[in-house]
């Protein structure tokens, strides 16, 4: 049963990630990415990370992708008529690295089986509660740094996107 769910989600994720790269129209690419985000959320549910699945849908599909679609609409982007000139080199590189990953994983599967990790009662308490406890105790300092990153990104985005914030009235 686990395998059926995994192969469904993994298949859709693989196909839609290929479509994101291959489709010429950026709106279609963004919509393929939307489908991929939903299936990644489904994969998180099968991995017992329910809270992350909800966050994935809310933040990625709800905020980030909508921002992309707004920019595509604002800039009135046309479909690309051709790919970049370095397509053959990039395709070769991708195929080579992909076979390398497959070979390495096939070799290592026999060598190292996953050791039986100590069965933690931590997951029994509920996913959201556990994450909250770890986030606000062990990772409190990185959490604060993350808020600083968001602040810097907000100020930077406003300054970059605003039209004549830096030029001022001295412009002729």
């Amino acid at each position: 049963m686990d395998h059926i769910f995994f192969f469904y989600f993994a298949g859709v994720i693989a196909v839609t990630s290929l479509l994101v790269v291959a489709l010429r129209n950026p709106v279609y690419s963004a919509l393929a990415l939307l489908i991929m985000f939903f299936h990644v959320a489904g994969l998180y549910v099968t991995l017992h990370a329910e809270f992350l699945a909800a966050v994935q849908i809310v933040v990625y599909a709800g905020a980030i992708l909508v921002l992309y679609l707004f920019v595509v609409m604002l800039l009135n982007v046309k479909a690309e008529e051709r790919y970049h000139d370095q397509l053959p080199v990039a395709g070769l590189l991708g195929v080579m690295l992909c076979t390398e990953v497959v070979l390495l994983l096939i070799q290592s599967r026999t060598a190292t089986s996953v050791s039986a990790a100590p069965a933690d009662p931590v997951t029994a308490a509920g996913n959201t509660e556990t994450i909250g406890e770890v986030l606000y105790s062990t990772y409190l300092f990185p959490f604060e740094v993350a808020s600083l990153i968001l602040l810097v990104a907000m100020i930077g985005a406003i300054i970059l996107a605003k039209k004549d914030l830096l030029e001022g009235p001295s412009e002729p």
């Binding site: 993994a10 994720i13 693989a14 990630s17 290929l18 994101v20 790269v21 950026p26 690419s29 963004a30 990415l33 991929m36 990625y60 980030i64 992309y68 920019v71 595509v72 800039l75 982007v77 690309e80 051709r82 790919y83 970049h84 370095q86 397509l87 080199v89 990039a90 395709g91 590189l93 991708g94 690295l97 992909c98 990953v101 994983l105």
Partner: peptide, 28 residues
């Protein structure tokens, strides 16, 4: 699966000309 998706993103960064789709590949 994650290696495949990551490499798809790398190839997407390399072969696309539209900078919005390059950012989408970084999301991948």
């Amino acid at each position: 699966l994650s290696g495949f998706v990551f490499l798809t993103g790398v190839v997407g960064v390399l072969i696309r000309r539209n900078i919005i789709v390059i950012l989408l590949s970084v999301e991948l």
